[in-house]
């Protein structure tokens, strides 16, 4: 099944003071696929996520959404396109309860007055359908474990029924069971046509759920592989720089040549 590319990044560059975090990064994402983003610490993965989610826009480069160029300057722009994000640092309001965090920025209200009952009902339903185990939806997230917080952040991102889902190391704090549960979930939403970028350091995880793997090294593209054909060693050597795929990549700028 061939889906049209929902999101395409071309020549994305971003620098922080003296650090060139991203250099001419290209990435293409089709509806109904999971692209894993791999790379060493500081390779620029989270920076790329924040570019797409509007948290810290790129200095240069083009973002295309369903074939036409768009500007993503604020988180709001990304939300309204249909991009949802789970950040590496989760970014939640510790003083608010789970319901408050799930609905932050998109509360259910009637003429500005919060409808707490409806939000709580939906929150409970959501926690139940995703089998997320937390003490209660009314406890402040400060009282949750790291894994529970991560689960809440993931539910929050899914609640908006996005077209593109950006997951920055979503399994970092999850236990074995919750991780496999998340992967089932990813496969389910992918089959419904959602496009997913999954950042992970775990090769096993990448092999388990991703369709393709894009490698970043020192802020540059360093290879793009089809998960069904690539070996773990090939990915690792691209990540560590043992294999320099940057040149190979640049020699083929036409992305249709990508696997």
């Amino acid at each position: 099944m061939i889906h049209p590319p929902v999101l395409a990044l071309r020549g994305i560059s971003k620098r922080f003071g003296g650090v060139q975090a991203l250099v001419d990064v290209d990435l293409k994402l089709r509806a109904g696929e999971v692209v894993a983003l791999a790379g060493d610490n500081g390779a620029g993965k989270s920076t790329l996520v924040k570019v797409v989610s509007g948290v810290s826009p790129a200095d240069r480069g083009v973002i295309e959404w369903e074939g036409r160029p768009v500007q993503i300057k604020r988180p709001h722009d990304a939300h309204s396109l249909g991009i949802a994000t789970v950040y590496q640092d989760l970014a939640m309001c510790d003083n608010l309860d789970v319901v408050g965090n799930l609905f932050l920025g998109r509360e259910i209200d009637r003429v500005g007055i919060l409808d707490e009952v409806e939000m709580e009902r939906r929150a409970r339903d959501l926690m139940r359908t995703l089998s997320i185990r937390i003490p209660d939806v009314r406890v402040p997230v400060a009282a949750l474990s790291a894994g529970q917080r991560q689960a809440v952040a993931i539910s929050r991102s899914l609640m908006a029924a996005p077209k593109v889902l950006l997951l920055d190391e979503p399994t970092a704090a999850l236990g074995v069971e919750q991780t496999s549960h998340l992967f089932d979930l990813i496969e389910e939403v992918r089959d419904r046509g959602m496009a997913i970028i999954l950042i992970s350091h775990n090769m096993g995880d990448i092999k388990a759920v991703a369709d393709r793997v894009a490698v970043l090294r020192l802020g540059r593209n360093n290879g793009l592989f089809d998960v069904s054909t690539v070996t773990q060693e090939q990915i690792i050597s691209a990540v560590t720089g043992a294999a320099d795929n940057a040149v190979a990549h640049r020699a083929r700028p036409d992305e249709e040549a990508w696997p």
Partner: peptide, 24 residues
Amino acid sequence: RRTRYGRRVYALGGGVEAARRAGI
């Protein structure tokens, strides 16, 4: 405590970055 606006105020106190990323 009961309005959408008030919720934003509390959100800012609990995590500015979270509030910003939520589009506030």
